[in-house]
Design a protein around this nucleic acid. Sequence first.
DNA 1: ACAAAGTTTCATTTTTTTTTGAAAGTTTAA
DNA 2: TTAAACTTTCAAAAAAAAATGAAACTTTGT
Lengths: 167, 167
Amino acid sequence: MEFKEAKNKFVQTWGALGSQWGINKTMAQIHALLMVSNEAVSMEDIMDELQISRGNASMNLRALMDWGIVYKEYKVGERKEFFTAEKDLDELAVKISRERSKREIKPVLKILKEVSTFEANNSAEEKHFVDQTTKLYDFVLKADNVLDKITEYKDNWLTKLVVKIMK
Amino acid sequence: MEFKEAKNKFVQTWGALGSQWGINKTMAQIHALLMVSNEAVSMEDIMDELQISRGNASMNLRALMDWGIVYKEYKVGERKEFFTAEKDLDELAVKISRERSKREIKPVLKILKEVSTFEANNSAEEKHFVDQTTKLYDFVLKADNVLDKITEYKDNWLTKLVVKIMK
DNA sequence: ACAAAGTTTCATTTTTTTTTGAAAGTTTAA
DNA sequence: TTAAACTTTCAAAAAAAAATGAAACTTTGT
């Protein structure tokens, strides 16, 4: 297998994975590309390698920076901006979970709390609704807290978790 | 807040969450509906409550059953089929992680192994590629194993995890 | 102050995903 | 064996999401 081929395979696969997880293909591909680049890459080069438009590149780079997993870099004597990805995988995982928690879990918790505290009459139907949504609220809250605690270790959280679980 | 209103809010929210996680809206909504129903629901009623076509209902119920989180039920004297959701949240989480691991993590691991074992020449670029994809492979493999181990507890895995983590 | 080099924005187009609905298929009871 | 009751399939339509590209904007060097 040639380098280009391997790189392309990786980028494509990461892109496909992204779309299965609600992250758009290009965003995941840019991230993949930057992850395996040993030096910062310009927007031009990204457009070129992924065959995408300037607008697309710009918007997805912005999104990746909002997630805190891609950084802008400046090179001396160069006017252009260059981009690098967070390459530390522990750090990457921490940032992704923080962001997803903030954007998705927290709003769901809010709604779950609301609907689970609705005043049921004593029909089995309404009681079951309150019961089930309450359980769901507790579950999601607990899961969110665990995630928080785990990623608080920050360095080597996964390794530390392995140790805890296995023993 | 009225019952109908609370229920609808929950179903809509669950649907929205689903689409952010790569699960289609209707599939998540049907699941939500079944989760909070105290008894099995017919396809007719699902179509009716969610205002969707028969085809849509049928296909998404099939998908939910493939995931192992929705079951078919028969009522005596009734020709129709009825559906229920897995309501035990531990069990639900276990099934979802198993399925996602099988469908998404495993294929990615395969590709990561492939590309990370490509024979790099000694340019910094190619070396970095191999290094980074190898790290990624190890990380994803470890994470997948942890998930496996965790969900092996099966009953109350989340509670048990909380205990392990906190102490 | 200007223009060159670069980036961002957003209305429009394209692509992808989801939904529909009607036809084909299946099961059951008489 | 037939027909009613019900479910599945899948080509086509609709909806949603992503990508384009050109104009607007910003920054920098002279």
